[in-house]
């Protein structure tokens, strides 16, 4: 609802997901303005930006190679000269391992969500748009839901061995149903809107309607879902690697760091605390940004 400066101009009618160009630009500007006006959104975005930059340039930023051992200096506490955050049981630099571990976390997060998107979005569109496919895809969704990500990872690890890729695939598969359901209900909603119905009546092809009207208008909800799916995947990777079902040592991963630290936690608490805090900061930043984004996109106005 906009307040007009010139008091006598008529107020705008409610815009409803219409891809009308000037309105769309105004909407984007309003969303960005809402995000910038929200300190939590700005902070979380800054954290994510730093994390991504660090991840991309990790090999250059990390002071040591994450696998470089130094048996003369095992369990050096944080603040030791040369090892800002200390060393672990094999004398490896904790900071370097955190940096490379975060990079692996982000990789798995993106890979998993990409998997879920590539499968989930088309199926969701098809399920919502073609009535004949709805039942089949719904059964498929139910089937996927019956396998929790950890159990999927167990199965995949049993069949193909544990690895970063398999962890990402297991998490991604587990996230497919969420995307299918979301995109399906959004498609159903959009399909009933006037401008889409009109386009269908005008004889537009199904693929054209889906690509031109439905998908572009569904992007915002997909985006929001992706911002909550990435941190979930990061947590999932940590769990799997911790259990030995994901990234394998000596490759650095926040989960494997915690698995090792479990044995030495009493002696070197920082090796147990720092990776956990790193995971939390990453995940928290994604979750806060996702929340802010959802609020900013919500036509009913802010909710947090």
């Amino acid at each position: 609802m906009s307040t007009t400066e010139a008091p006598l101009t008529p107020g705008p009618s409610v815009a409803d997901g219409d891809a009308d160009a000037p309105r769309e630009v105004g909407r984007r500007r309003r969303i960005v303005r809402r995000l910038i006006g929200n300190p939590l959104a700005v902070i979380s975005f800054a954290v994510l930006l730093v994390a991504v930059v660090v991840a991309v340039f990790a090999p250059w930023i990390a002071p040591y190679s994450p696998e470089q051992t130094d048996f003369a200096r095992t369990f050096a506490p944080p603040g030791t000269s040369g090892h800002l955050l200390g060393t672990d049981d094999l004398g490896r630099d904790v900071l370097s391992r955190l940096i490379l571990g975060s990079r692996a976390s982000l990789e798995v997060g993106l890979l998993a969500v990409a998997t879920a998107l590539v499968v989930g979005v088309p199926l969701g569109l098809a399920s919502g748009y073609f009535r004949s496919l709805d039942a089949v895809i719904s059964r498929f969704t139910d089937l996927l839901l019956a396998f929790p990500f950890l159990i999927l990872a167990v199965g995949l690890a049993a069949i193909r061995g544990a690895s970063l890729g398999n962890a990402a695939v297991a998490i991604g598969i587990a996230q497919i149903p969420g995307f299918i359901r979301l995109v399906r209900s959004e498609t159903l909603r959009l399909k009933s809107l006037d401008f889409v119905t009109a386009s269908i009546v005008d004889g537009a092809g199904d693929l054209w309607v889906l690509g031109k009207h439905v998908l572009p208008n569904a992007t915002s909800v997909i985006l929001v879902q992706a911002t909550v799916a990435i941190p979930a995947a990061i947590l999932g990777e940590a769990v799997l690697s911790f259990l030995g079902l994901g990234i394998q040592p000596p490759d650095p991963s926040l989960g494997t760091m915690l698995a090792t630290a479990q044995q030495f936690a009493a002696r070197a608490p920082w090796t147990a605390i720092l990776p956990g805090v790193t995971i939390m900061v990453l995940v928290l930043a994604f979750n806060i940004f996702g929340d802010s984004l959802r609020d900013a996109l919500d036509p009913k106005g802010s909710r947090s």
């Binding site: 307040t3 007009t4 008091p7 008529p10 107020g11």
Partner: peptide, 18 residues
């Protein structure tokens, strides 16, 4: 013809004038 305006401030005018 026309719409009821959404007003920020009530103007010193007849709001129906437009």
């Amino acid at each position: 013809p026309g719409l009821v305006p959404v007003l920020a401030v009530q103007p010193d005018a007849c709001t129906f004038a437009p």
